[in-house]
Amino acid sequence: MSLVTVLLLAVALGTDAFSMCIGVGMAGVRRKQILIITLTVLVFHIIMPVIGWYAGGYFGKLLGRAAAIVGALLLVYLGGRMLRGAWRGGTEEESRAMVANTWGLFVLSASVSMDALSVGFTLGTRSVNLIQVAGITGLVAGIMTFAGLVLGRFIGNWVGSRAQLAGGLILIVIGIKLFWG
């Protein structure tokens, strides 16, 4: 597998994280949260192809769909909380809490990394350097996560209070898309 192919694969795998993080960033995130979310998604995008490589097709189908459903529902829930906060003039702290706690961060990171698990299964049938592919995938996903969070934060600061409403709608749409699959 050529380096260009691996990079294109990594960008494709990072698009879910990028789009999700625009919505999260619009809700308002602190610098520390940006770093934690970026590193968590990066690690998940390294681990998931490796797990996929070793786990086998049946286990991946069961875990992948369940985690995707939980992740999708969490995104819809987070988006709904953001909408509710925007309508009642609440603070952004409620929305941030979902990605600030360990469980919420874990589920969101896992949900945007499920496609990397599936890719790991496919890569297991090919003669590829798993460490190289997983490392590049993680690094690119981390960069895209960071970019999405920073872009979302910038848009949120620029647009003001309406950004929370837009971010909530974005997360709900992404969650519905992930749920239906």
Rank of each mutant, 00 (worst) to 15 (best):
A147T: 15
V128Y: 08
G138W: 00
G167F: 04
S127C: 00
I143T: 06
L130T: 08
V150N: 08
L169V: 15
T137F: 04
G148N: 04
G135L: 02
L169R: 07
G160I: 00
L151C: 06
G156F: 00
L149H: 04
R153G: 15
I131A: 11
Q164I: 12
A134R: 03
S161P: 12
G167Y: 06
T137G: 12
V150Y: 13
L165R: 14
G138Y: 02
R153E: 11
I131H: 14
G156M: 02
G168A: 02
G138V: 01
I143K: 06
G135A: 02
S161R: 15
F154G: 12
S161V: 10
G138C: 05
R153F: 04
F154C: 03
G152V: 00
I136M: 08
V159P: 15
F154H: 10
G142H: 03
G148V: 04
N157S: 14
G124E: 12
R162W: 11
I131Y: 05
V159I: 08
L149A: 11
G156V: 05
L169Q: 06
V140K: 01
L149I: 07
L151W: 09
T137N: 11
L165G: 10
L149R: 07
L165V: 10
L130P: 12
N157H: 15
R153K: 05
A147S: 15
R126G: 00
A163C: 11
L165W: 12
V133C: 09
G160Y: 05
I143M: 12
S127R: 13
G135D: 06
V128C: 10
V140D: 01
V133K: 07
N129D: 15
A141Y: 00
W158C: 03
G152P: 15
I155P: 13
G148R: 03
L165F: 14
G152N: 08
V128G: 10
A134N: 02
L165S: 08
G156Y: 04
G148C: 10
A134T: 09
T125S: 12
N129I: 02
G167H: 13
M144G: 03
Q164A: 14
N129Q: 09
N157I: 00
V128F: 09
M144N: 06
A166Q: 05
N157M: 09
F154S: 15
T137Q: 10
G138P: 08
R153D: 08
G160S: 12
